[in-house]
Simulated scan of single mutants.
Amino acid sequence: MSAESLERRTRNYLNNNVPQIQDHGGHFEVEDVDEETGEVTVAIGGACSGCGIAPMTMNAIKHRLPDEVSDISKVTVRQANGPRAAVMPNKTDEMEAMEEYQDYNPPF
């Protein structure tokens, strides 16, 4: 497989299975692909940078990509840092303590 092929498969998976990112005004970028090791780095930004549950989305991407895209061994997901990146408090810990989020499973 070529790095381009792995990048394309990663991008296709995210486009097809994580539409909430774009639907909510966010975006993702496949920043780096190491063909030999299978390591992929994805950055999410736009509205994701200001979203309190972005860490949950990032965690889901990190754990699901290797299961769904063959040849991926490790995924690093980070929030994009740009001049428009909003700094919002991380709501993940607070949400995990709330009963209604105990079984939270992003729909992708």
Score class of each variant (00 low, 15 high):
residue 52 G to R: 12
residue 80 A to G: 12
residue 94 E to T: 15
residue 76 T to V: 07
residue 50 G to I: 08
residue 3 A to P: 02
residue 68 E to K: 13
residue 106 P to N: 02
residue 73 S to N: 13
residue 77 V to K: 05
residue 86 A to P: 01
residue 41 T to F: 07
residue 52 G to Q: 12
residue 9 R to Y: 05
residue 63 H to F: 04
residue 46 G to K: 01
residue 22 Q to K: 06
residue 105 N to Y: 14
residue 95 M to A: 05
residue 22 Q to C: 04
residue 93 D to T: 10
residue 50 G to T: 03
residue 90 N to R: 11
residue 100 E to D: 10
residue 3 A to N: 11
residue 62 K to A: 11
residue 99 E to C: 08
residue 12 N to G: 11
residue 27 H to M: 05
residue 17 N to F: 06
residue 52 G to V: 08
residue 35 E to C: 13
residue 7 E to Y: 09
residue 68 E to W: 00
residue 2 S to A: 15
residue 95 M to S: 05
residue 27 H to D: 00
residue 51 C to R: 07
residue 57 T to K: 02
residue 9 R to G: 04
residue 47 A to S: 08
residue 28 F to H: 04
residue 75 V to G: 01
residue 21 I to V: 11
residue 2 S to Q: 14
residue 77 V to Q: 02
residue 92 T to I: 01
residue 99 E to M: 09
residue 62 K to G: 14
residue 36 E to T: 15
residue 85 A to Q: 15
residue 51 C to M: 09
residue 102 Q to G: 07
residue 50 G to V: 02
residue 49 S to A: 10
residue 55 P to G: 06
residue 10 T to R: 08
residue 33 V to S: 01
residue 47 A to E: 09
residue 71 D to W: 01
residue 101 Y to N: 06
residue 87 V to R: 08
residue 41 T to A: 13
residue 52 G to E: 11
residue 102 Q to H: 14
residue 13 Y to A: 02
residue 20 Q to E: 01
residue 91 K to T: 03
residue 76 T to F: 02
residue 5 S to W: 13
residue 81 N to Y: 10
residue 63 H to Q: 12
residue 57 T to V: 09
residue 8 R to L: 14
residue 83 P to R: 14
residue 102 Q to R: 07
residue 37 T to R: 15
residue 17 N to L: 00
residue 2 S to L: 11
residue 46 G to V: 06
residue 21 I to R: 00
residue 53 I to K: 07
residue 80 A to P: 08
residue 101 Y to E: 03
residue 49 S to G: 10
residue 89 P to C: 10
residue 63 H to A: 12
residue 7 E to W: 09
residue 104 Y to Q: 12
residue 4 E to C: 10
residue 20 Q to I: 06
residue 50 G to C: 00
residue 45 G to I: 00
residue 33 V to H: 01
residue 76 T to E: 00
residue 83 P to S: 13
residue 104 Y to V: 05
residue 78 R to V: 13
residue 11 R to W: 06
residue 39 E to M: 15
residue 18 V to E: 05
residue 40 V to Q: 03
residue 76 T to D: 07
residue 20 Q to G: 05
residue 71 D to P: 02
residue 50 G to N: 01
residue 71 D to T: 01
residue 79 Q to L: 14
residue 69 V to R: 04
residue 101 Y to K: 02
residue 90 N to D: 15
residue 1 M to F: 09
residue 23 D to A: 05
residue 25 G to K: 01
residue 89 P to S: 14
residue 31 E to L: 09
residue 90 N to V: 12
residue 57 T to A: 12
residue 19 P to V: 03
residue 51 C to W: 00
residue 60 A to T: 12
residue 60 A to R: 12
residue 60 A to P: 05
residue 102 Q to T: 04
residue 103 D to P: 04
residue 75 V to A: 00
residue 82 G to A: 11
